[in-house]
Amino acid sequence: MTGAILLTLKLAGLTTLILLLVGTPLAWWLSRNRVWWKDLISAVVALPLVLPPTVLGFYLLLAMSPQNAFGAFLKAHFGIVLPFTFEGLVLGSVIYSLPFVVQPIRNAFEAVGRGPLEVAATLRASPLDRFLTVALPLARPGFLTAAVLGFAHTMGEFGVVLMIGGNLPGETKVLSIAIYDYVESLEWTQAHILSGGMLLGSFLLIFTMMLIEKRSGRLY
């Protein structure tokens, strides 16, 4: 049981970290750019919101499989095999939770607007400098929301994990799969402990986030 909890936290933590690193430039680009195909990218990023997780998992499994081009490439050049491994889960989670991280950050950047950045430009700040010292700090509340949503959403994923990760203890057996297993084998106590823990943990996470948002809302 502890193994599943630790694995889930590790997966969610790592996924959130990667998503913040990848999602920030992506959100920045989406909030600034006006090229016609921007909406196309935007829709692709948002797709996991509406796509059934099993469908996403199915295609990911196909792509990762060493029988196909992407999987074969990874195996030949880096010796990486993704299906039914922790690394595969991380990749799947990153794609699955992408919109939950990109959207709040993008909204925050859009709320900052052009004004403060133009002001910074007239105060001798280079484009990178403006991004780091004006856009990022002013968009801070959006980053908090993004991190919490990305983390929580990854914690609860089931369909994608089942499709590409299977159920290997210590490697791919995350909380939601463990709960499913306990229920299947009628081990109600364990299922209660894990589910109750998840419920309480999720509530505390969201509640804390709202408190912090309220506080920073007062500050700005």
């Binding site: 403060p116 002001v119 001798r124 700005y220």
Partner: peptide, 20 residues
């Protein structure tokens, strides 16, 4: 020459102070 390399000062209609 991009804005940040011009030796200008600019006062906007809205003060545009950095809130943070």
């Amino acid at each position: 020459v991009p804005v940040h390399r011009r030796p200008i000062g600019y006062v906007f209609q809205e003060p545009g102070l950095f809130a943070h």
